[in-house]
Design a protein around this nucleic acid. Structure first.
Lengths: 213, 213
DNA sequence: GGTGGTATCATACGAACGTATGAAGGGAGT
DNA sequence: ACTCCCTTCATACGTTCGTATGATACCACC
């Protein structure tokens, strides 16, 4: 029934090399700022490889975005499962895991930001991953509201307030270092920043204050 | 003393037209995705106008970024001054004003995001504006900590948690509409989102819970 | 009423872009 | 051993890019 072919999410061989190289370059220089020649050269392949494996530069880009976002699903699910039963603890685990994931995948915030900025449609697979993750966080909040540990309020909107922090603070990494001397490359500084966000989120969610002074 | 010439922040005539047009196009299509021809045509000027008035496309871009950020300073200062004496109220005013400003200047989040992603240096004027704003918010928080209405914690890091929310939620506007049916173009929806962030911020800052249920 | 400086104009140049094309490899299956 | 088919390769095409150049227009001022 006129099914639009969904791009794969895993690749091997030359296609995988192209995805990996393209992801780094797109994150650094944007879609238009990254040439097919730069990608294929860095990946050690022929100029025609992108056309052959993906059909076009645009198709490669969409594969990059979709495949970059996908691993968050399982990662977040595991983090929540590993945390205790208390929703506030699950939320904290989610925040920490998100920070960790972004630390391991520094390409992700630039990629997301560029995609959100551009008028190009967001790949359906990416949209599904995002809404799935927000949904997970929101239902976790709703659970805490039901059990009384989290204050009332629209759980999806609260989830957005939470998700915005790790991603924006990671995206602004360079500006924070250059502008206000907060250097996330320093492990101690980074730990304090993560802890601060965790504290802010717990305080922002909690129905009753935890251990304030 | 080898002074690097600081670009002006106000322009008139053709230069102003170019700034305004370029700002909209850069925000929409990025730096590399926006051609000198597209800018000059849309601005109703000659192809050579950018070279003449700014020297190069890059110099125009920096002028755009710096001048776009600058008005926040005065706007935020006025908002804080107009709010009462209670730091939590000032923080709320700041959040609301930030949302309003971004609503009126939808180019700003894409511009900032692109600048943060790119390896190009952040224009010094822009960096100064950002750190000034964060500083204002941080000292407001410190004030509340001194008076006892705001919980303890690193005031600068708390300021970052706050600032991240309006900007990221505005940046993600399209994704929120397409992915999880939150449409900020609808005034009611938008008001609920802003209120939710305000609630989250107040809860995240307050030393004692305000009026939770 | 020329004259000098600022601004705008049409046009040209070389470089880099994304993609198309057809030939050359290179194993697996018969 | 030969035939496919998947992949890689070198190269070419037409377009668009940012900038440079020199001519023209405008206008205040002596």
């Amino acid at each position: 029934m006129n099914q639009i072919p969904e791009p794969r999410l895993t690749y091997d061989g030359t296609a995988a090399d192209l995805i990996q190289t393209a992801r780094a370059l797109f994150a650094l220089h944007g879609y238009e700022g990254t040439s097919v020649r730069a990608i294929t050269q860095r990946a050690g392949t022929n100029l025609g490889a992108i056309t052959y494996h993906f059909g076009s530069k645009r198709a490669l880009y969409e594969a990059v975005v979709s495949s970059a976002l996908e691993p968050t699903r399982e990662r977040f699910a595991r983090a929540v499962a590993a945390a205790g039963d208390e929703p506030l603890d699950k939320a904290e685990a989610l925040v920490r895991t998100f920070f960790d994931f972004l630390q391991e995948n520094p390409d992700l915030p630039p990629l997301m930001a560029q995609q959100l900025t551009s008028p190009e449609p967001i790949p359906a697979a990416a949209l599904r991953t995002i809404s799935g993750n927000i949904g997970m966080l929101a239902s976790l909040i709703a659970e805490g509201q039901a059990s009384g540990s989290i204050r009332s309020g629209d759980s999806r909107l609260m989830a957005l307030s939470i998700a915005a922090q790790p991603i924006w603070l990671t995206l602004a990494r360079r500006a924070l270092r250059e502008g206000i001397e907060i250097d996330q490359d320093d492990p101690g500084t980074r730990a304090r920043l993560v802890q601060s966000v965790v504290d802010f989120v717990r305080a922002g969610l909690a129905a009753y204050p935890e251990n304030r002074e």
